[in-house]
Design a protein around this nucleic acid. Sequence first.
DNA 1: GAGTGGTCTAGACCACCAA
DNA 2: TGGTGGTCTAGACCACTCT
Lengths: 235, 235
Amino acid sequence: MATELRELITSGEYPPGSAIPPLPELMDKYGAARDTVREAISRLTHEGLVSPRRGIGTVVRQRASVDLSYMPNQTVQTWPAQTEAEKDTVVHCTWVDSDEHIGKQLEIAKNVPVFLRTRHQTKDGMVSRLHDQWIPEQLVEAIRKKGIDLAEETEAGNIFELLKIAGYTPTIVTETFSTRMPSPEEKEILSLEEGVPVLVISRVTRDANNKPLETSYMVGAGDRITQTLTVPIKS
Amino acid sequence: MATELRELITSGEYPPGSAIPPLPELMDKYGAARDTVREAISRLTHEGLVSPRRGIGTVVRQRASVDLSYMPNQTVQTWPAQTEAEKDTVVHCTWVDSDEHIGKQLEIAKNVPVFLRTRHQTKDGMVSRLHDQWIPEQLVEAIRKKGIDLAEETEAGNIFELLKIAGYTPTIVTETFSTRMPSPEEKEILSLEEGVPVLVISRVTRDANNKPLETSYMVGAGDRITQTLTVPIKS
DNA sequence: GAGTGGTCTAGACCACCAA
DNA sequence: TGGTGGTCTAGACCACTCT
């Protein structure tokens, strides 16, 4: 039954935004019990094809359109491509002690203070990416000496500029991409539907001396976020 | 119930590889019916936490370890990081007509012949990444003039070298990362368990004149594939 | 209020695995 | 063979949405 319904959906018989037949109808059509039908729908839900809505019906989801077009260097693209500006807000700032992973990324010791900025990248009123950013104490100090206290900054995205001002010009970034299913907390914050994975990016930014300036851990909504990188090929 | 079990798993009470209590036991413990317990386990399954195994039990999955370490330029990393060589085999070669998307990527017209190579990247006997690669006719011809027929090549990964020989040196690649749940076919080929997403990479390779040389669409198993890129920051 | 999906129950039978 | 999870049924009640 799931196979047949999937076929009807992908073939466009039930276009995105429309609803598939309600449970009682499917029970009749396939001569199956209610939970059997629900199980089939559950599979399609976890494949990201449909979204059951209480009181409304089971609607076919919008396709994550595959217009992965060429983009300039290091951009984040959200879709649908609307003109509304994205927001990038710092929701939390604090000093934490480096754990093993952070220490390794920043090439510093364990249990030393690092500055943690937690940011939410918002688009169309929905949080589409979580961004945790760790900055070594030394650099936060260097920035403070220039008269800027990171803890008071609520505008985000200018950290590279601040680092440059402080004498640490970011020169190279290393990004590692992976994917997984979201935790319940991430699902909540990112307003993710059932069966939507997250795009995980782990980043280290370095200066010309290969010294790590910051490391980030980003979790993006898989149905709204895509990231494009342009890199030269070593020859 | 799902919340409590999730807590027990993530806290390490049920470590990876171990089994959570069997259905009858959980029914007793929570005073719930069989299908109610199964529903809770189903949620954890689709979060990627556990894998029910008929005749064995419901085992806690191995963590996709987050040792996202620094890697050199443009590498693909699979884990667990074993020494066994990966294989990259061409499973299918054919001429197809360009559709709208491929035409856009390669900056050529629709309905002109392009060469399609379908590859399987294998690790430890499991296919871990699917790779469809489209190459414009002109370039396949240029390579053929150098005495190499792409259709007869079964070794993969040397296309960049061949292009260079043919006078089209690849200089820059643009990669777009996204994620989604696998189709049933992908799930089958990649041996994916329930609740494992795929990492999707759309790539365009260009030469020094910004002319597209090839475009690729790669689908990697989310529980085994990660990709690291190192890029310079434009200043 | 009528119609939608969400949860839960109690019981049955099937498929797979290990000892 | 006994224990595991997978599927299915029939019925009940709840929660939500629209008119």
